[in-house]
């Protein structure tokens, strides 16, 4: 059983580290938000796994609050990125049509 829990912890850690890499590397703000969402989900699952390991149910409310509020940051950022985009929609549309997106665009990198 201990081995099993060790593997579980290892998988979670590697998953979280990979998500953290994506948060740092970007390239766009949206990539970072997706990655931070995954990081948060991983944390939520780890809270759950800890409950199974230590045989208690005290942190269920923590999971509940995380599940209910995880979306706010993502939605706010996605909304802001869209809004920012409308400040110059014409140029942006032309740009993306002309360059055919050979390389990944970096306009939204901050």
């Amino acid at each position: 059983m201990t081995v099993l829990y060790f593997v579980v912890g290892l998988l979670f850690s590697v998953g979280a580290l990979l998500a953290l890499y994506r948060v740092v590397a970007g390239p766009s703000i949206l990539d970072r938000m997706i990655a931070s969402d995954v990081l948060l989900t991983t944390l939520m699952l780890i809270v759950g796994a800890e409950m199974v390991y230590n045989e208690h149910t005290r942190t269920i409310p923590v999971m509940l609050v995380l599940a209910a509020t995880a979306m706010f940051a993502t939605v706010a950022v996605a909304r802001y990125v869209s809004k920012q985009d409308t400040s110059a929609p014409e140029e942006r549309l032309n740009e993306s049509d002309e360059q055919q997106l050979g390389e990944s665009p970096v306009e939204t990198t901050t």
Partner: peptide
């Protein structure tokens, strides 16, 4: 319960790998 945890952890790892390996925003989603 341990096996279920293992499956959950595996999916979490796969999500991390997918985040790093996929090329654009929708695929990473």
């Amino acid at each position: 319960a341990g096996i279920f945890l293992l499956l959950g952890a595996f999916l979490s790892l796969a999500a991390g790998v997918g985040l790093v390996r996929f090329h654009d925003v929708p695929s990473r989603l």
